[in-house]
Design a protein around this nucleic acid. Sequence first.
DNA 1: TCAATCCGTATC
DNA 2: ATACGGATTGAC
Length: 636
Amino acid sequence: MCVDSPLPHLDRPFDYQVPAEAAAAAQPGTRVKVRFSGQLIDGFVLERAAGSDHEGKLSFLDKVVSPEPVLTPRVARLAREVADRYAGTLSDVLRLAIPPRHARAEAAPPAEPPPPFTAAVDGLAWHRYVAGAALLRALADGRAPRAVWTALPGEDWPARLAAAAATSLAAGRGALIVVADARDLDRLDAALLRVLGGPGHHVALSAAAGPSERYKRFLAVARGSARIVIGTRAAAFAPVADLGLVAIWDDGDDLHSDQRAPYPHARQVLLARAELEHCAAIVGGFGRTAEAQQLIETGWAIEVGATREELRRSMPRVVTVGEQERARDNAQAAAARLPTLAWRAARDALNAGAPVLIQVPRRGYLPAVACADCFTPARCAVCSGPLALPAAHGVPSCRWCGRPAADHACPQCGRRRLRAAVVGARRTAEELARAFPDTPVRTSGRDGILTSVPGEATLVVSTPGAEPLADGGFGAVLLLDAWAFLTRADLRGTEEALRRWFAAAALARPGAPVVVVADGGLVAVQALLRFDPAWLAARELAERRELGFPPAVRIAALTGPPAAVAELLSLAELPPGAEVLGPVPAAEEGHERMLVRTTRSAGKALALALKTAAGARSVRKAADPVKIQVDPLDLL
DNA sequence: TCAATCCGTATC
DNA sequence: ATACGGATTGAC
């Protein structure tokens, strides 16, 4: 039995006797109620056994809530592994992995299983990639290839992933594909409907579907009638029977990281799953994360990328224009803070009756402190953490270890000036409207996302991730305030910038101009010019190794009231070589954050030590809990 | 010497 | 959380 308690010291199996009348129903994986320290609580049956090692008396389980085995042994094993990696508890992970029960959905007659899938799968488009054909062949043969797939610009990625999943299905095995948000999920769903020739073989799991529908679809998977699962991050735990392939699209998207303890990342869940279930894995995107690069460099996965020739054929025309090269002779362009080249590209596309995409930073976007001259992020000389400016004119200090950095000089150019402000996104849009008075301006962002726009002369101002598809593609794409992305406060700035640019550039018509307003000498801009995310990812990973950032090392962030964090650290028997950084003030009032850094190989021991210490605190009812995050995305 | 109470600990 | 056991304290 796994009892549903958030207390870390209770994260172990407990044995119960099964009363005779429950003997048939209480199968492994079912939900039960048990009396635990006086109260009735929920739990899952992990396994049935003839005896117990427990010295004391065993209680009887109270009742079987439902005979539906929702927790398969494989998912239980996976959840245990994920809990251990992230210093969390099994029951916390199971809360993410298994949707709440909905009795009515359970009672509904099970869906008719679809006829066996036999249609031929068109995998030809995978031939545009080096090792792409081999990847599909291995899937068709039921082998377990692992690939980092860097998609060509403009690639119909849902169709490619659908073909891969269908290939796995045709080989008699299931598939699981995780995407970042509902929009990507809809596109993938449509692609699967086309490839599979109809519904029934696959389901889409996401919280957006609502509790009843969500549980109904989950049951279709658990009962084995749907063999292909697509979904958002929690779907990574879906109980797909005989799993042949796991895939994640756009693994650099923040949304893949769960917001509930223990904050697992869908990529890591799927990779663990690929190992446990000996199945194929695809990590795909237009960009490439340092984590994906590491999979290639360690030999865990092979690289599936386009040939140079294929790339040349599908690349948009990327041009850069420096911020300083603003039009001084063109009043309209100057008003919009658009360099002449960008303004002309937009005007030409609009004149040709095509929509223009303008990507701007999110409102309220807070970039990190960077060199005012070359935009290199300013880092602490001691621990490599990002610097912060306390007030308009103050001494910058490290956000990780708190040390002041009065004598900071840019390691790239040696200059000392710093900058930390971003141009407002909304204002940019307003000014664009003034610069093109006869053209409708539409916006897409957090407050209202456009899915698609018609192929007409329209300016579309969008924040990253909210870009609509344009009918026929955009006639021009402008990437404004690029420097702000590059100085993002956390350590994924460059990678993130390129991810967003690639995503936007992929929406341009073939041959249409993509204008990035940034210095052409910047590493990320060079990667965009060459359309070479692999090159950037390799550099990025090398840099992380040098600076001691994940994924080259493992870092745990401990956040809470200072006394609680200190107590946790004093109780933890950290693995040898662990480095403790901080404290620095945390976002919440009165809280602070400490970081513990170890090698990757000591990561398991680090997580175990922290969880044991948290258990020791919780057993003695320590008041303030400490938030433990392993390899958090926001390493501020 | 006994019972009421407090504290720490385990929770099958 | 809550229930239990052992230690502690206070009144007879």
